[in-house]
Computed example of a mutant assay.
Amino acid sequence: MNTLSSIQGQMLEKMQVLRAASQAPAVLPANGGEAAQGFADALKNAVHTVDARQHHASQTMAAVDSGRSDDLATAMIDGQKASVSFSALLQVRNKLVSAFDDIMRTPL
């Protein structure tokens, strides 16, 4: 009889934990608590991020070229980061265009 009451107690504790978890606030997105605005906004943010990274890389390269900075390694790394982010953005664009073409070719 003692084991039955202990099992019931454990089940009651688990039920209370699950009830508390179900009443807890929803999990916030990783972007600082802001809800996603939409797919178009996500793409716009990605384009702006890549653009900012390319501008930063060109500024560091211009600083090295003009002699204001002698940190060639950082300038090269920034350039590579900009290149990789641009390539990733192009791949996403290519996938989107391919998906759009597939949808347009689908017979009705």
Results as ranks from 00 to 15, higher is better:
residue 14 K to H: 11
residue 75 A to Q: 05
residue 93 R to N: 06
residue 81 K to D: 13
residue 97 V to K: 12
residue 22 S to V: 03
residue 82 A to W: 07
residue 28 L to H: 04
residue 53 R to M: 12
residue 35 A to E: 14
residue 55 H to Q: 11
residue 103 I to W: 13
residue 102 D to Y: 08
residue 98 S to I: 04
residue 53 R to Q: 15
residue 77 I to G: 01
residue 57 A to C: 01
residue 28 L to R: 10
residue 17 V to A: 08
residue 9 G to T: 13
residue 27 V to N: 12
residue 3 T to E: 06
residue 88 A to H: 05
residue 101 D to F: 10
residue 17 V to W: 07
residue 9 G to I: 03
residue 78 D to K: 07
residue 63 A to Y: 00
residue 78 D to W: 02
residue 67 G to E: 05
residue 80 Q to G: 04
residue 88 A to K: 13
residue 31 N to F: 03
residue 14 K to A: 04
residue 25 P to G: 05
residue 64 V to K: 01
residue 32 G to H: 05
residue 30 A to V: 11
residue 101 D to V: 09
residue 85 S to L: 08
residue 33 G to A: 05
residue 105 R to F: 07
residue 26 A to H: 06
residue 6 S to F: 01
residue 69 S to F: 04
residue 41 D to C: 02
residue 64 V to G: 00
residue 94 N to I: 03
residue 13 E to S: 07
residue 26 A to I: 07
residue 3 T to A: 00
residue 54 Q to G: 04
residue 26 A to D: 11
residue 71 D to C: 00
residue 69 S to M: 02
residue 52 A to M: 08
residue 35 A to N: 11
residue 91 Q to F: 02
residue 49 T to V: 04
residue 64 V to N: 02
residue 32 G to R: 10
residue 103 I to H: 09
residue 50 V to A: 15
residue 67 G to Q: 05
residue 59 Q to V: 02
residue 73 A to T: 13
residue 74 T to Y: 03
residue 80 Q to R: 13
residue 96 L to Q: 08
residue 96 L to K: 04
residue 6 S to Y: 08
residue 25 P to V: 05
residue 92 V to W: 00
residue 46 A to C: 04
residue 105 R to L: 15
residue 28 L to F: 02
residue 62 A to P: 02
residue 86 F to A: 11
residue 88 A to L: 11
residue 12 L to W: 04
residue 33 G to T: 10
residue 83 S to N: 14
residue 73 A to I: 08
residue 5 S to A: 06
residue 62 A to I: 01
residue 19 R to Y: 09
residue 57 A to F: 00
residue 70 D to L: 04
residue 63 A to D: 11
residue 6 S to R: 08
residue 22 S to D: 07
residue 45 N to I: 09
residue 48 H to L: 15
residue 89 L to R: 00
residue 27 V to I: 12
residue 8 Q to S: 02
residue 67 G to C: 03
residue 40 A to L: 15
residue 69 S to A: 07
residue 77 I to N: 07
residue 44 K to M: 10
residue 75 A to H: 08
residue 61 M to T: 07
